[in-house]
Design a protein around this nucleic acid. Structure first.
Lengths: 148, 148
DNA sequence: ATTACTGCAAAAGATTTGCACTAGG
DNA sequence: CCTAGTGCAAATCTTTTGCAGTAAT
């Protein structure tokens, strides 16, 4: 079976880019995790296997993947760190400002919206970043407990 | 006539917050400009009138307005600077990755989406940040000219 | 009078850069 | 081989912080 990462490796290769063990590991890690990772998180996760790995390489690779349209840049929610999203399909990210978690929400409308936008604006769309923020159910509960 | 900024000043006052000339100027500038400003831009724009103004105060005020839900934090597009948006109504921001401009796009769907999200997730929504990025019409044209 | 707010300068923290070295093709 | 990619450390740049002084209420 041809996985998403396999075809990405093929594509990198066809562009004349080198398949270094670091890139392979970083790409694998991003696509296998469904999280909205930061460069730091990726670095720390791979450090045990690649003691020599440098943060700069992680940033380089993320930048490369972004330019190829393989990851989306989510930006910050509350913290000041850029989060990357391996899910490039139009979808909604929902962040809790209290516990800082970010989850994906399936949205029918998100899919339609990009069509609407590109038609109305004449832009060639490269990607999107849809982030709603608020307080998640469990943090709401916690809040209620404290105010009683 | 009661303007948007006037009622905001009233609200600040009622919260026991002080109406300093700096805050008034910053708030005015953000709400009068329809742009997606950065702290630096606000600082530089007001510096001539307030030679003593400090960047820290701009950041403080932006942070305050954000916590009051009066401005949205847009995040970066390509550059690495946080842009703030005085338009807190659900709407779509469209950024050009070449010329870095960000414009607002009216979208019928954007209004419906927050209802869909909050219903599906159980979150108490505080705000949203919808950013599409791509290449604007004039940058597309420029690109075509270069490849001919 | 109080004390919230400001301005300054220093600090913190994320990301980028320059460069010599290494290794993928 | 050749040169793209890596790792390291220093540099850069945005944002935050601590604190003494200032001004809004």
């Amino acid at each position: 079976m041809q996985t998403e990462t396999d075809s990405l490796f093929k594509e990198l290769h066809e562009l004349g880019l080198r398949l270094t063990p670091q890139r392979i590991a970083i790409v694998r890690y991003i696509f296998e995790s469904q999280d909205h990772l930061t460069a730091q998180q990726i670095y720390e996760a791979l450090k045990p296997q690649f003691p020599s790995l440098s943060l700069a390489t992680v940033y380089n690779t993320l930048d490369l993947l972004m330019k190829l349209g393989k990851v989306n840049v989510l930006g910050h929610i509350g913290d000041d760190i850029v989060h990357y999203d391996s899910n490039t399909q139009p979808h909604v990210n929902l962040g809790c400002v209290k516990c800082k978690k970010i989850e994906d929400v399936p949205s029918e409308l998100a899919g339609h919206m990009s069509d609407e936008i590109s038609l109305a604006s004449g832009y060639t769309l490269l990607g999107s970043r849809i982030l709603y923020y608020g307080i998640c159910k469990s943090c709401q509960l916690e809040q209620e407990l404290f105010t009683q």
